[in-house]
Design a binder for these strands. Structure first.
Lengths: 108, 108
DNA sequence: AAAAAATATAAAAATTTTTTGATATATTTT
DNA sequence: AAAATATATCAAAAAATTTTTATATTTTTT
């Protein structure tokens, strides 16, 4: 892993939206449309951020029909540690299992 | 540790100069002037990046006369792990104990 | 074959970060 | 007290990132 690989990973993690995306994927894959509806963000914005996470090797994707499912990619030990740390640190604050009427997450 | 604290830490780590600064401090404190002479960067630039690392709680400083010495701040376990991982991953590539005639580090 | 659905991509605008050059501040030395 | 040294800060410029709006592509459904 080169310095620029490291920088790319940290850059990917240095954005609140992307940390939320990682936390959202904790329990398994989700398609973009589901993520959009949960986070109430524009679809291009979600795709943009997912792409940065993918480039950094933090998530992977799987195509099924017209949908694309994203999931955590923790095949690398260091990345796995990072992802787990992040989820552990923001899960409670970010989610606390609170969803609003429309199924949107309530972030604290 | 809030989400924005986490983002701040990762933002601080998402820059090559700052990763090099952390690696440079591996073996103990250095004053700004020494860092400037080793890295061959402008003093305001070095101060700027050190300040970002300090704001994120990754380094601490100590004043002595006209000099200011910076050192790693790994009092927090998560930060310590991050710093150690970074040093372990870039040390060989970045340093390999190579210094040029003027005492400047040769980065690979 | 047309329409609909899901997603990516691209261009422009907005925002943030980084670099640079100049200057200010504080401490030590002469 | 003046000069020198080390460092921070500030403002402007440059560069990079993010957001937004529009559009293209692919697959499924009708």
């Amino acid at each position: 892993m080169s310095i620029s690989d490291l920088v790319k990973i940290f850059k990917a993690l240095s954005d609140e939206t992307r940390l939320k995306l990682l936390a959202l994927l904790e329990n398994g894959e989700l398609c973009v449309c589901k993520i959009v509806s949960i986070l109430k963000m524009s679809q291009p914005k979600v795709s943009f951020h997912l792409n940065i996470l993918k480039d950094a090797g933090l998530v992977k994707m799987r195509k099924e029909g017209t949908r694309i499912f994203y999931s955590l990619d923790d095949s690398d030990l260091f990345k796995r540690f990072l992802i787990l740390s992040i989820i552990e640190k923001i899960k409670d604050k970010a989610f606390s299992s609170n969803f609003n009427q429309e199924g949107g997450v309530i972030w604290k």
